[in-house]
């Protein structure tokens, strides 16, 4: 049976550094490796959203038939008979340079520095530009994917391309579609989005979004942005008045 005929998700075996392992046809190789307990670094991968392949850290060498090559594992589909090698010299060399590039792009991120240090990379030979000095964002796009695929708010997306690519709210103004759920803040691997709260207002800093908070009728505590309750309520056919009390008091 050729692998095209194998149903997606069917149990198959493949090899990691010569060890036979169980996986599921066409699942993400990185997902499989992590489940199996192998350590592979990555910053842009999250099980809850689609794979993107931006950070280039989860490099491995794969071999099918005679051809061996370097690839990111997050977006590589597992198939029967696949041979994977983890820390080959080529993987180490390329990963080192990816870390060096990330250190030049986001020098202000402690997370990037810590992960790089784990893999023995402590400095970069590449230029840190003036505008990158305080930058923490590595443009992995996880925030936008969560916002689109999980939350469904579609408030943010990449803008520009190439060296001008950026992750901003449209026109870098307050993101009007942002419901302030904070999912992006949660998944951001370099914690560069920022969420602040007063008893009245929740602010998502990177998207310049200020959202008034709804107060629980019973306990009086603010429990969610009003706009979030309205938006999500509309989707399930409920009105704002249906959300008068917080979960704890319900």
């Amino acid at each position: 049976m050729s692998h095209e005929d194998t149903p997606k998700g069917a149990k198959i075996t493949f090899q990691v550094d010569g060890r036979a392992c169980e996986g599921f046809h066409h699942e993400s190789l990185l997902g499989a490796l992590r489940r199996l307990g192998f350590e592979v670094p990555s910053l842009c991968f999250h099980e809850a959203v689609s794979t993107y392949g931006a950070c280039r850290l989860c490099l491995v060498e794969v071999q099918k038939g005679r051809k061996s090559r370097i690839t990111t594992s997050c977006n590589f589909p597992v198939t029967a008979g696949l041979q994977v090698r983890l820390d080959t010299p080529a993987v180490q060399q390329n990963r080192k340079i990816v870390f060096q590039l990330l250190l030049a792009k986001a020098p202000a991120s402690p997370e990037v520095r810590a992960l790089a240090a784990e893999y023995g990379v402590h400095s970069t030979p590449y230029k840190v530009s003036e505008e990158a000095k305080d930058n923490k964002c590595i443009l992995c796009g996880l925030c936008a994917r969560v916002c689109t695929e999980v939350v469904g708010a579609n408030a943010i997306a990449f803008s520009g391309r190439g060296s001008h690519k950026d992750m901003v709210a449209p026109y870098d103004e307050a993101a009007e579609a942002c419901i302030g759920c904070g999912a992006c803040v949660e998944v951001c691997p370099t914690h560069c989005i920022g969420l602040r709260e007063t008893p009245e207002i929740r602010t998502i800093e990177k998207w310049h979004r200020d959202l008034p908070l709804q107060k629980c009728e019973k306990c009086g505590r603010p429990f969610a942005p009003t706009f979030q309750l309205m938006t999500l309520g509309k989707r399930v056919g409920m009105k704002l008045s249906d959300f008068k009390v917080c979960n704890d008091c319900r």
Binding site: A54, C55, V98, L102, G162
Partner: peptide
């Protein structure tokens, strides 16, 4: 560098 889509680190930052 200008025409790269900017998706992946090696192409965007590398260039």
């Amino acid at each position: 560098a200008e025409e790269s889509c900017g998706k992946c680190v090696t192409c965007r930052e590398g260039l």
